[in-house]
């Protein structure tokens, strides 16, 4: 899908991948995370994971409709790759799916330059719980099963990229 089809910025209306969207500085999310951390401690992770997951539980099924693949021949693998392609237009890092094992429900997903983790470089922790939730919800709704996702590498933890392991619940 070309740039024109994927993103449209007009006065009063921004549409990305067929979804009405807002353009925000990543610091908007950072501030929310920091304040939730302050009040809730480690529970912030669960809160942002759930927010990301619920969003994708609801969105991914409609994304399926706009994907270019004819629906009758659409394999789940292809749909996952298309979803990741859509995410690559979110301007929050470069995503890549590196393993799709549908038989065992095991997936590996990477993001280079996560804008969620960038403000926390040097912190020594995984910080992309929101993205982890998105991946669990997004892949899960494509394959039609409940999945969980864990971040195992993060640029905020000193790794070169952020990496996520996705498995069945």
């Amino acid at each position: 899908m070309g740039l024109k089809g994927m993103i449209s910025i007009e006065k009063g209306l921004v549409v990305v991948a067929g979804e009405r969207s807002v353009l925000i500085p990543p610091s908007f999310i950072t501030l929310l995370q920091d304040r939730v951390m302050k009040e809730k401690g480690e529970k912030w992770r669960e809160i942002f994971y759930e927010a990301g997951k619920k969003a994708m539980d609801n969105l991914a099924p409609t994304y399926k409709l706009i994907m270019l693949i004819p629906r009758n021949s659409a394999s789940k693998k292809k749909l996952i790759e298309e979803l990741v392609e859509i995410w690559s237009w979110m301007s929050c890092g470069r995503p890549e799916v590196t393993k799709i094992d549908l038989r065992n429900n095991h997936f590996t997903f990477r993001v280079y330059g996560s804008t969620i983790a960038k403000p926390y470089l040097g912190r020594g922790e995984m910080m992309c719980d929101y993205l982890a939730g998105m991946v669990a919800g997004g892949f899960g709704s494509i394959i039609g099963e409940s999945l969980k996702c864990r971040e195992v590498k993060c640029i905020a933890n000193g790794n070169e990229f952020c990496e996520f392991e996705v498995t069945g619940v």
Partner: peptide, 20 residues
């Protein structure tokens, strides 16, 4: 700038409203 679709924005707000 990052993209946040309005539905994700809604669920983020709901989750925050529920938990903080």
């Amino acid at each position: 700038l990052s993209v946040l679709d309005v539905r994700s924005f809604y669920y983020l707000k709901k989750e925050l409203g529920r938990s903080v």
